[in-house]
C-alpha cells in the first residue's frame, strides 16, 4: 500500500520529466500539501464558526449584562453572575414546560417507535400479500399531503385539541423512518432464520418479538434517538393544537420568552424607569441562560448518540 514517491523522483530534476506523462512530481506534492493546508484551514474556520456563537452564549449567560452592552465580553465572561440561572430555576413556567416536554417525549417516542418497528417489519416481509400496494399507500404521503388546515380540522374533529394526543399523534410516523426501518429488516434478518423458526412452530408474532427485535438493537436505538430529539425540539404542533399555557412544552415556553420577549414573569413590570431597566437587564441575562439550559440535555447526550446516528446514515444510504 505504501505509495510514497520513490527516491528516483526526488533525485531527478523535475524539468526532465515530460509534462505529457503525469508522474508524482515535486510540484504535485506541493500541490497536495497546499490542498491539505487549505482544507484544514477551511475546516478549522468552519469549526470556529459553529463553536464560537455557542461559546459566546455560554459566557454571556454568566456575564454582567452591562459588560455585554459595552462590548466587553469576547473570550471570557466579565463580572460573573449566576442571576440568570437563578431566575430560570425560580420560573415555574420553565419547570412546567420541562415536565410537559418529558411527558410528551416519552409518550411520543414510545408510540412512534412501536408503530414504526411493527409496521416496517410487516412491510419488509415479501410474503405478505398486498405488500406493494400497502407500501405505495405510505410512499404517496411523502409527496403529497393535505396541508396544515385540513390536518388541524381533522385533529379538531377527533376532539384532540388541547390534549396530549394532539402533540404526540399527528406526527407519529414519518414515512422516511419507516423506509429506513424496513430496509434494515430486509438486510439483517435472513429469510432462512424465519423459515427455521416457522418450522419449529413459531408464529409471526413470536418470531418478531423473540428474534427480530433482539437482533435489531442498533435500529431501535436509532429510532428512539431520532424521536427523542425531534419531540424534545418540536414546538409547532403544540403551538397550533394547544391553547392552555399549563400544557405548553418547553420549546413553546422558550419561544414565548426568547422570541416574543414576554418578560411578564420577571417580576418588576410597571413601576419606575429604573426598575424597568433592571427588568430588561434580567430579561437579557435570562435569555442567554435559557438557551444554555434548554440545549444542554441534548448536547450532553450527543457524544453518546453520535455512534448511532452515524450508523443510521449508513442504514439510510444502503436503501
Amino acid at each position: 500500500m505504501s505509495l510514497k514517491t520513490s527516491p528516483v523522483n526526488i533525485d531527478t530534476p523535475n524539468r526532465n520529466v515530460s509534462p505529457a506523462r503525469p508522474r508524482p512530481t515535486l510540484r504535485d506534492r506541493y500541490g497536495d500539501r497546499a490542498f491539505n493546508i487549505a482544507a484544514t484551514a477551511i475546516l478549522l474556520l468552519s469549526i470556529l464558526a459553529v463553536v464560537y456563537p455557542l461559546y459566546f452564549i455560554v459566557i454571556a449567560s454568566v456575564s454582567d449584562p452591562n459588560a455585554i452592552y459595552e462590548g466587553k465580553v469576547w473570550l471570557f465572561p466579565s463580572g460573573v453572575t449566576l442571576e440568570g440561572y437563578q431566575r430560570i430555576f425560580a420560573d415555574s413556567r420553565i419547570w412546567n414546560g420541562l415536565g410537559n416536554t418529558v411527558i410528551y417525549t416519552v409518550l411520543g417516542t414510545a408510540i412512534s417507535v412501536t408503530t414504526i418497528l411493527c409496521g416496517a417489519y410487516a412491510l419488509s416481509r415479501k410474503d405478505m400479500p398486498g405488500r406493494k400496494i400497502l407500501m405505495l399507500l405510505f410512499v404517496i404521503t411523502m409527496f403529497f399531503d393535505g396541508g396544515l388546515i385540513t390536518k388541524y380540522l381533522v385533529v379538531r374533529d377527533l376532539g384532540m385539541l388541547n390534549t396530549v394526543w394532539a402533540v404526540v399523534l399527528p406526527g407519529a410516523v414519518g414515512v422516511w423512518n419507516l423506509i429506513i426501518a424496513r430496509s434494515f429488516f430486509e438486510h439483517t434478518i435472513p429469510n432462512e432464520l424465519r423459515e427455521a423458526a416457522q418450522m419449529d412452530g413459531a408464529t409471526d408474532f413470536k418470531f418478531f418479538f423473540k428474534m427480530v427485535l433482539p437482533l435489531s438493537k442498533p435500529l431501535i436505538m436509532l429510532m428512539v434517538m431520532i424521536h427523542v430529539v425531534a419531540q424534545w425540539n418540536s414546538f409547532f404542533d403544540a403551538l397550533i393544537f394547544l391553547n392552555d399555557d399549563s400544557k405548553y412544552p418547553l420549546q413553546l415556553v422558550l419561544r414565548n420568552i426568547l422570541i416574543q420577549s414576554d418578560v411578564s414573569s420577571t417580576g418588576t413590570t410597571g413601576g419606575d424607569i429604573q426598575s424597568y431597566a433592571a427588568a430588561q437587564r434580567i430579561a437579557e441575562l435570562t435569555k442567554y441562560a435559557m438557551i444554555v439550559v434548554s440545549s444542554l440535555p441534548l448536547m450532553i447526550a450527543l457524544p453518546f448518540m453520535q455512534k448511532h446516528f452515524t450508523k443510521g446514515a449508513m442504514i439510510g444510504a444502503v436503501k
Partner: peptide, 21 residues
C-alpha cells in the same frame, strides 16, 4: 399477524394523512 403488526401504522396514515387529503 403481519396485518395486525401493520395496523397501527396503517390507521395512522389513514387518519392523519388520507383523511386530511
Amino acid at each position: 399477524q403481519l396485518y395486525v403488526l401493520l395496523a397501527p401504522a396503517l390507521v395512522y396514515i389513514l387518519v392523519f394523512k388520507y383523511w386530511p387529503m
